[in-house]
Computed example of a mutant assay.
Amino acid sequence: MTYLRAAAVGLFALAPLPALAHPHVFAEARLEVVAGADGNVAELHNVWRFDEMFSSSVILDFDKNTDLKLDEAELAELGETMRTSLADYSYFTTITMNGETVDVTKPDVLHVTLQDNQLLVIFAIKPVKPVPVKGRLTFGIYDPTMYTSIDFPTDEDLAVKGEGFGHCQHKVVRPDPDEIIEQNSATLTDAFFNDPTGTDMTKLFATRLELTC
């Protein structure tokens, strides 16, 4: 596999070397799940703030006029590159409906800005099919390659919005990695630790929002 470094946004386009199955890029996130008037989940609103080192590398790679900043055109190009390449990873988004995984649509646009020398990415995505606000629902953001660490600083950064969630109970689950490994030792093989891209087990470690409606 090609090492994720040809360009900063290669993070979203290529897979890392198996030996590098741990985070190298860090982002703080906020996820807001929005209920629609029709009784279904309408959208997932995302805000990601990347670490300064990764943000600096992005500036170097997309600063076409070499003025050491990104203008509107350069930010738009970056957003479109990310919008295209992240599709291969479902925008790091996992949705389950009563245990069934639901994919997401491609967002219309990824809005990218720089604040305090950090890359800020804002976008909204939708489930590919109706997700009724009933039963057991889960929502999470994680990188299946484990190259990027997506962190929610507080439980309030995983939130619901809309009257449709009024009858639901929700909680934020932050799995303990040691417990996950112990509980799943029979299924977490060497293949997982060497190449997590070949498995779907990384979601066990991801912080998630669980709803019971």
Score class of each variant (00 low, 15 high):
Cys168Phe: 00
Gly164Arg: 01
Ala124Ile: 03
Lys129Met: 15
Phe123Leu: 10
Val133Gln: 04
Lys129Asn: 11
Asp157Met: 12
Asn117Trp: 00
Leu114Ile: 03
Pro175Asn: 13
Asp176Thr: 08
Lys171Ile: 13
Phe123Asn: 08
Val109Glu: 09
Asp176Gly: 08
Gly140His: 01
Leu119Phe: 01
Ala124Tyr: 10
Arg174Pro: 06
Gln169Phe: 12
Val160Arg: 06
Glu163Gly: 14
Thr138Cys: 08
Ala124His: 14
Val121Ala: 08
Phe165Asp: 01
Thr113Glu: 11
Ala159Met: 08
Gly162Asp: 04
Phe165Thr: 02
Ile125Val: 14
Thr113Phe: 02
Asp157His: 07
Leu114Arg: 02
Gly162Tyr: 03
Gly166Pro: 01
Gly140Tyr: 03
Lys134Pro: 05
Asp157Cys: 08
Val131Ser: 07
Lys129Ser: 15
Arg174Asn: 08
Pro130Glu: 00
Gly166Ser: 15
Gly140Met: 09
Lys129Gln: 15
Phe152Gln: 07
Gly140Phe: 01
His111Gln: 12
Pro175Met: 10
Val109Arg: 06
Ile122Asn: 07
Asp155Gly: 10
Asp143Met: 10
Phe152Asn: 06
Val133Lys: 05
Cys168Ile: 05
Val121Ile: 11
Asp143Leu: 07
Ile150Lys: 03
Arg174Ala: 03
Asp151Val: 12
Asp157Trp: 00
His111Val: 11
Ile125Leu: 14
Asp116Ile: 03
Ala159Val: 06
Phe139Asp: 07
Pro127Thr: 09
Phe123Trp: 14
His170Val: 11
Lys161Asp: 07
His111Cys: 05
Tyr147Leu: 12
His111Ser: 11
Leu119Asn: 03
Leu137Trp: 00
Pro175Ser: 12
Pro144Met: 05
Val160Glu: 07
Gly135His: 00
Ser149Ala: 15
Gly166Lys: 14
Phe152Arg: 05
Met146Gln: 12
Val160Asp: 05
His170Arg: 15
Val112Ala: 09
Lys129Val: 15
Phe139Tyr: 05
Cys168Met: 11
Val121Phe: 06
Met146His: 10
Ala159Pro: 00
Lys161Pro: 03
Lys161Ile: 00
Pro144His: 06
